[in-house]
């Protein structure tokens, strides 16, 4: 932390360059992610058509120079749907990571700092953790009806307890630090202590955690769609493409394999990036893992 402020911008750049050379996989993963994000953002300009339009192409046409990724069983263009699907999957990953990290941070700090609430909060978290995440998510989706928002929330809820535990552990260890004890002794208000001393310590591990949450969220979204409890099928997410295509897998495997492999690639990239970030930002955890 301290070292970063003392280096100049060029120094940082050089450091990252050196980091890339020593972590080639992380660098490749970063590039893949950038490409995917760009593809998602620029989807309308990359030779695509209306992703929901049916019957534009003959049904189940294999990949060809005209339709790069072929068509699905309703004659929709798979290339188009894969690009638009990137928007959904990446968005789910991002949203779930942001929501579970911020909620987890809030609950974790409360739990770690307010001992009276701690026992209650942690029992609830234990309870949530002991329900298999995918079942909890399916249950929540069937409660609230499938929409992009509900699916995102349903995937977020099972991720929160892990974040809470991480934050709480950090809070507990930071509380014991002499400078925090000193701050408490001079009567600094709790929110200020949390803000000034606890939060900065949480940031690096949480960034790392966020990447893992994002990766697992993208996978869970696909699994939910596969089981019929995911985002509404009119949304061209990769999970939905695979769920719809699986019936015709033996005749038209590309309908499943193209989004499946793209999804795997995206998650792989996020995970590898997470590992890299961990090595860079949080050497303590890196050593332990």
């Amino acid at each position: 932390m301290q070292s970063r402020s003392s280096t100049t911008d060029t120094g940082t750049l050089a450091k990252w360059g050196q980091f890339c050379r020593s972590h080639p996989f992380t660098a490749v993963a970063g590039v893949i992610l950038i490409v995917l994000v760009l593809a998602a953002l620029l989807a309308p300009y990359l030779g695509t058509v209306d992703p929901r339009k049916i019957n534009i192409l003959p049904r189940m046409r294999p990949p060809s120079p005209q339709a790069w990724f072929g068509s699905d069983q309703l004659g929709r263009d798979v290339w188009t749907r894969t690009l638009y699907g990137a928007r959904i999957s990446l968005m789910v990953g991002l949203m779930v990571a942001l929501m579970s990290i911020s909620l987890g941070l809030l609950i974790g700090m409360i739990s770690g700092y307010m001992r009276k609430l701690d026992a209650v909060i942690m029992r609830v978290m234990d309870g949530l953790m002991s329900i298999p995440g995918i079942l909890l998510a399916i249950g929540l989706v069937s409660v609230s009806g499938a929409s992009f928002i509900t699916v995102t929330i349903a995937i977020t809820v099972p991720e929160i307890p892990r974040v809470v535990r991480l934050v709480r552990a950090i809070v507990l260890s930071v509380r014991e630090e002499p400078y925090v004890e000193a701050a408490i002794a001079v009567g600094t208000k709790t929110p200020l202590i949390l803000w000034r001393h606890v939060l900065p310590n949480c940031v690096p591990p949480l960034i790392v955690q966020a990447t893992y949450v994002a990766a697992s969220a993208m996978l869970t979204e696909a699994l939910l769609s596969f089981l019929g409890a995911g985002t509404p099928p009119e949304i061209p997410s990769w999970g939905n493409m695979m769920a719809e295509g699986r019936i015709v897998f033996p005749i038209a495997p590309w309908i499943v394999l193209i989004p499946g492999c793209t999804l795997a690639l995206a998650i792989l990239a996020v995970n590898v990036l997470g590992d890299g970030l961990r090595d860079r930002l949080d050497p303590k955890i890196a050593k332990r893992m």
Binding site: M60, Q73, I247, V248, P250, I251
Partner: peptide, 8 residues
Amino acid sequence: VTPDLIDV
């Protein structure tokens, strides 16, 4: 038999 699978 699901219509899509008839041909297979």
